[in-house]
Design a protein around this nucleic acid. Sequence first.
DNA 1: GTTTAGCACTCTCGGCTTTAGAGTGCCAAA
DNA 2: TTTGGCACTCTAAAGCCGAGAGTGCTAAAC
Lengths: 357, 357
Amino acid sequence: MYNRESISGGNHPALNERTQHLLKALVERYIRDGQPVGSRTLARDAGLDLSPATVRNVMADLEELGYLHSPHTSAGRVPTARGYRLFIDALLHLRPLDGREVEMLRQRIDRPAQNGAELARTVSDLLSGFTRLAGVVMLPRRNVVTLRHVEFLSLSDNRVLAILVLNTQEVQNRIIQTRRPYSTAELQQAAHYLNEQFTGKDLQQVRESLLRELRETRDSLDRLMETVVEMAEQTFETEPAGEDYVVAGQTHLMQCADLSDLDKLRQLFEAFNHKRDLLHLFDQCLHAEGVQIFIGEESGFGALEGCSVVTAPYTVEGQVLGVLGVIGPTRMAYDRVIPVVDVTARLLAAALNEQGS
Amino acid sequence: MYNRESISGGNHPALNERTQHLLKALVERYIRDGQPVGSRTLARDAGLDLSPATVRNVMADLEELGYLHSPHTSAGRVPTARGYRLFIDALLHLRPLDGREVEMLRQRIDRPAQNGAELARTVSDLLSGFTRLAGVVMLPRRNVVTLRHVEFLSLSDNRVLAILVLNTQEVQNRIIQTRRPYSTAELQQAAHYLNEQFTGKDLQQVRESLLRELRETRDSLDRLMETVVEMAEQTFETEPAGEDYVVAGQTHLMQCADLSDLDKLRQLFEAFNHKRDLLHLFDQCLHAEGVQIFIGEESGFGALEGCSVVTAPYTVEGQVLGVLGVIGPTRMAYDRVIPVVDVTARLLAAALNEQGS
DNA sequence: GTTTAGCACTCTCGGCTTTAGAGTGCCAAA
DNA sequence: TTTGGCACTCTAAAGCCGAGAGTGCTAAAC
């Protein structure tokens, strides 16, 4: 289902049954209420018929081991990142989505959407709606986008429209300024050649192959190849950057009492705009299988302090295309969020595979 | 330069020179500091060699007339919406952008961008960057988008890709499911026909004309027309909704001390997502010429309390295509913001006109 | 040896009072 | 008409207090 290996390599010493049970109860309670949990509360909550005093001893041990933390002398205890880690890796019971919910998701995702950005928007809206957190969908990384078809269309004397049909159920247009006018026949020939040679190759490969070929056959460059090269050079050149990912439901983050510090929130929002960091984080998840979870500062950059990130990659034809997930306060309802992210990734993959073929 | 007619029809009684000067000084000071301005401060600030007591009398008059307001007995005065209105309509000295800044804007806007959404993004980023407020660009309203060229491309047996080149420097793709396979020749003929007949017409017109024509000639429907109708029906049918506008730099709004109330901020952000209201507001600006300013609640919907909206329409070939502008706290630096919005709208219009031809 | 009750101690949070300072309005004099 | 003076008002910050929650420790009970 998902990857229970800790990222930060949690070498957890064996805890006895009871201690584990108490830790689990504490984390659940804290996730529910958002307030430090005291011994009395926990004693009642755990249903183990223990006195508060006993619970206190256990809590002291857990604090010693770094799973818990007291904000101050006489508040209750709060889980540390390490505590959450153990909770997620070993103690959590997932609550799978019920059939209706899965069906609802499937319908929204399967609905034919024209381009990638639009689909990403839909999916991040869904993630955000189901979890009441911020949903993020990373669009396919450029270099696994492969060509399915290319066509050229003369717009005016020196302008040609290139149309790329990609494997991701997406169509891209680029307008090319050419040095001389090309006839429709020339353009058709060029397109034909490119389709013959490069269908199924990824876009960067296409460019590289062509340049190599060009160098080898520079002398015997016939009219056809000349056209092909001029077209292809610009068509596959600099990828339009576009949006790299789509975020939905940031406002949910403002509702979390935990993040009500305005300044922290601003940092977070700015992180959403300065894509670099977030992309870097998501890149780390590309190669993992199944659901990955970053807790608080584990993610490695400061703006996400107090936040967790739950991600899962989605694949088309066996290849990882991108990553989706949610971002929210560390005390999110993992038992529900994890299945939502997991299922969504699978459904998106299914939708892309089906439509792509 | 911009429309100095008040929207809420400001029938301002004549104020004497000195009173006007003091109001101006007060508003400027308040815009700078964000704190109620007291008589002593204002006396010094205005440079009129008046005593605080005199200034107090004037302020009392201005309050009487509804231009100022005291938060409480012993705070200074703050401009009311009406006060801002008078300030903007009659007292404000604009600070035009200097040449370098205009040049910088021009370069960023002129850079050839492939599609409308991307260009809108760039422009709203610019607005946001230059004003440190939230920039908004409304995309062209659908029914002034006219067709420049259409082409069809067979993808597989029953799927055809329609490519629309529009007057807005934009290319759109739609994938069409057809009832039967079409040959390349048929598709070319159909495209040719549509291009002949409908270039320059707006998209809704195209659809309507075709349906009318269809009804008239239903009997003598030849093979060509059959193709045309099937293609066109789906191509021009329901416009993909897409994004209606683009917002950039919302985080700036979080920095404004005025809006630091988290709840108000959330309302505002949610307004950005529930497009309706904002679109409605912007629609009002479509028909006005030049810069329009809404102060606080003048805009008519609650989320914008404490905010002003500065907008300007942009035109292509004499027709208003859309609206752009910024949203920020009422105490924004109008003397700078107004020229920025104004110039940006002109540059965008220029860029679209130039590239479009 | 583990669990529990009891108890003294610590710390925060909310409410209350106090105080300093800013600014006003009004009156009487210039 | 303008100005200085003065009493008055209101807020915001600081300080204070008591209630409550929770702890750690110790000694007794199981």
